[in-house]
Every structure is written in structure tokens, then in C-alpha cells.
């Protein structure tokens, strides 16, 4: 165990990490946010999912430092009288789960399909890419409608509240894999004619090994750029779906749907419903992106081996 740790400590990965202040700060902030959101039931002053504690008469209480603020609600309350701070913590957990889960699913599907399409080419390539076109035309909205129909047939309307998170991960994950597939495929097309691939073939490496070990690392750069941005997109897509009644249930708001629902109040004075979750989301996405940038620089074979 200790040798592993030693190994890790001496690695280029770790070395570049402790020498990059931005990376360290981002990492610390991200860890803090993740810890906060997953320990929300312990640290949050209220339980926003427990409807018995919510009173509509507390609705739109401003933050504590403003006139009319209530010491019970540090950052004020939303239109239902939920404590914003607690709702943000709970909501961030949902958003992180959905954002990361969906992006992981998209990336996995996209990379596999993109590698296969690019590497083997021909009819298989055409078929997969046209499938991607079909998929793209349907956009997230239609995919959500389609899958919700299947969900409803299996579980009925009343189970929705429990199944919303996996449902949304599947929907957003399935909807946007073509973005990855096309990018990876394009890189593969460019890479597979290069000498090192030919060399690997001559040596007799299997297709799988060539794809994963040799070609994939060279496509990493665009994948990481897309991924970090897709996390933000996934979180916002979830919020947009709530309009169709296909997002998180209104009683269990995510960060995105908080921003969404508060946005109509922004000009009527109750800006805190949107602004606080908005700031939190920006910070969250910012650190994920900064870490993504750093990771890309570190992992990219061309950059340091070049």
C-alpha cells in the first residue's frame, strides 16, 4: 500500500498537481462542495424535502442581513418558504449526481461508438453516424419524452419522485452521446493513418488495444473540453426538462431548477432565489473546468512527451 502511495507521490501527475496553485485551490473547493452536498442532511439547517416543516407563509423571506430577514433562514427562502441555503445544499447533490452521471454515460457511449466507427469505417461507420444524426435530431427534450413514456408504462406516474434521478441521468446521458462520438471519430480518422498506428498493427496488436492504448489518448484533449462544458449543460438541461414535467419533481428541486424557478422573481425583488444558487453553480462549474483544463494538460501525451 505504502509503495503505491510512494509511487503516486513520485508520479508526474502528483508533481504537476502540487506545483499548480490553481489546481490545488480548485481541487480543495470541489472537495468541499462535494462533501457539503453529500453531508447536506447533517449540516443543512433545514430539511427541504420534509414538506411538514415548510410553511408557505415564510415564502420569499429575504436574506438575514436585509430588512424583514429571519434568523432562521440565513439566505432567505424561496416561493414555497423553503430555506434557500438548505435547498441549495440538497439541490447541489442532485445536480452533481445528474451532471456527472449523465456526462459519464455520454462520454462512455460516445467514446466507444466513436472509436468503433472511426477505426473500422465503412458501412459500420455510416450506420453509427447516421444513428447519431437521428439521435441529435431528437434533442434532449424528445428523448426525455420517449423514455418517460417507457418509465411510466413500467412504474406508473406515482413512482416518478423516487426514480427521477436515474431517469434524468439516462435521458441526458443518452441524448448527447453523438457529441462525443463524432469528435472521437474525427480524431481517430486523423490518427489511424499515422505511423505509430501502422507500426502497432505491424507488431500485431489487436484492434482493441490499438484503439484504447494508442488512439484514445490522442483524442483526449477535445473530449475533456467538451466534458467540462457538458457538465454545466447537463445541469441546465435537467432544469429545462422540469418545464415539461420531466425534470426533478417540484418538491425536490435541483440547483438548476432553483435557478429556473427563481428567475421569474428576479425583477420583482426576490433576487436571492436565483442569485445564490446561481453563484454556487458558477463556482461549481468553474472549479470543474479549471480541474479539467489542468487534467488535460497533464494527461495529454503530446504535451509532455512531445
Amino acid at each position: 500500500m505504502s509503495t503505491k502511495w510512494q509511487q503516486f507521490k513520485n508520479s508526474y501527475f502528483f508533481h504537476s498537481f502540487i506545483h499548480d496553485k490553481v489546481a490545488i485551490v480548485s481541487f480543495v473547493v470541489l472537495v468541499m462542495l462535494v462533501v457539503c452536498s453529500f453531508s447536506a442532511p447533517i449540516i443543512a439547517p433545514h430539511d427541504p424535502y420534509d414538506t411538514t416543516t415548510i410553511d408557505v407563509l415564510d415564502a420569499e423571506t429575504p436574506p438575514i442581513w436585509m430588512e424583514g430577514g429571519n434568523p432562521n433562514f440565513l439566505l432567505g427562502t424561496d416561493a414555497q418558504g423553503r430555506d434557500i441555503l438548505s435547498t441549495m445544499l440538497y439541490g447541489m447533490r442532485v445536480s452533481l449526481l445528474i451532471g456527472l452521471g449523465a456526462v459519464f454515460l455520454q462520454a462512455f457511449l460516445g467514446v466507444v461508438i466513436g472509436l468503433i466507427a472511426g477505426y473500422f469505417g465503412g458501412k459500420l461507420d455510416s450506420l453509427l453516424m447516421r444513428l447519431a444524426d437521428v439521435q441529435l435530431s431528437f434533442s434532449t427534450l424528445m428523448v426525455a419524452i420517449f423514455i418517460s413514456a417507457i418509465f411510466q408504462a413500467f412504474f406508473g406516474i406515482n413512482k416518478y419522485e423516487e426514480l427521477a434521478v436515474p431517469f434524468l441521468i439516462i435521458v441526458i446521458g443518452l441524448a448527447e452521446w453523438p457529441q462525443y462520438a463524432r469528435t472521437v471519430r474525427a480524431s481517430v480518422l486523423a490518427e489511424k493513418k499515422k505511423e505509430y498506428v501502422e507500426a502497432a498493427k505491424v507488431i500485431g496488436f489487436g484492434s482493441g488495444r490499438i484503439m484504447w492504448k494508442h488512439i484514445l489518448p490522442n483524442t483526449l484533449s477535445p473530449i475533456l473540453v467538451i466534458s467540462t462544458i457538458q457538465v454545466a449543460n447537463a445541469i441546465m438541461s435537467e432544469a429545462a426538462l422540469s418545464f415539461l414535467g420531466l425534470g426533478m419533481p417540484v418538491t425536490k428541486p435541483s440547483l438548476g431548477s432553483l435557478i429556473n424557478s427563481g428567475f421569474e422573481y428576479i425583477f420583482s425583488g426576490s433576487w436571492w432565489i436565483t442569485i445564490f444558487p446561481g453563484i454556487l453553480l458558477v463556482i461549481l462549474i468553474l472549479v470543474i473546468n479549471l480541474l479539467g483544463d489542468w487534467l488535460r494538460d497533464v494527461l495529454n501525451p503530446k504535451l509532455y512527451k512531445g
Binding site: T52, Y160, G245, V250
Partner: peptide, 12 residues
């Protein structure tokens, strides 16, 4: 929920 009726709400 205050009279212990737990409601599963779905809006559309």
C-alpha cells in the same frame, strides 16, 4: 403533510 398525508406530486 402536516396532517400526515404524504403527497407524491407530479406536474406537467
Amino acid at each position: 403533510s402536516k396532517i400526515n398525508i404524504k403527497v407524491n406530486l407530479k406536474t406537467m
